[in-house]
């Protein structure tokens, strides 16, 4: 089983990203579970959300204490990453991994998701786009599954869906390099 932590700020859509990832993994034929850190959300305050992906049905219902992966939507929150991450930490940042000061055994990958979101969506909506980086770097989910999940989650809300699809593809490409 793979556990993923999403770290973002209230309003950034971390909860939605974990949900879209769970749908995408399910579309890929896996089992999944997504849930927010249970509590009271405030705009701008740190928000955590979680996803579990497995080949078999997931019975585990405890909170996530350590994870294989973390996706950090806002790099200023890095100090708040208190859970241990064993595989990879994906950070939305224009810095290089070696410039990131973080005490971890996990690999660090930086992708400038905000830049791509501004180009493709016109607004710094990074939550969905960040999943493109996750797919490219970890290969735990397919880009095709993610696209299906976006349609399911956002429905046919017009241009925003297309813009998010473009952004996720661009981020996927960028992170595959």
């Amino acid at each position: 089983m793979k556990q993923i932590i999403f770290l973002g700020r209230g309003g950034q859509g971390a909860v939605t990203s974990s949900r879209v990832l769970a749908i995408a993994a399910f579309e890929d034929g896996k089992f999944s579970q997504a849930f927010p850190n249970f509590g009271v959300e405030r705009m701008g305050a740190p928000v955590r959300s979680y996803c579990r992906i497995d080949e078999k049905k997931i019975d585990l219902r405890e909170q996530v204490y350590d994870a294989e992966y973390a996706i950090v939507l806002d790099a200023t929150l890095l100090n708040g990453l208190i859970e241990s991450v064993s595989d990879t930490i994906i950070i939305n940042s224009n810095k290089k991994p070696e410039e990131i000061n973080l005490n971890t055994k996990a690999k660090i990958k930086c992708v400038d998701i905000t830049k791509i979101a501004l180009e493709e969506i016109g607004k710094p909506f990074v939550n969905i786009a960040a999943l493109g980086a996750f797919a490219a770097i970890t290969k735990e989910v397919s880009l095709n599954g993610l696209e299906k999940a976006i349609y399911q989650q956002m429905g046919s809300k017009g241009p925003m869906v297309e813009k998010n699809i473009n952004a996720i593809r661009k981020v996927f490409e960028d992170a595959s390099k």
Binding site: R19, A22, F31, S32, A34, F35, F38, R61
Partner: peptide, 10 residues
């Protein structure tokens, strides 16, 4: 509450 009401799964 939360541990199931807010958990997304198949």
């Amino acid at each position: 509450g939360f541990s199931l009401s807010h958990v997304y799964e198949p």
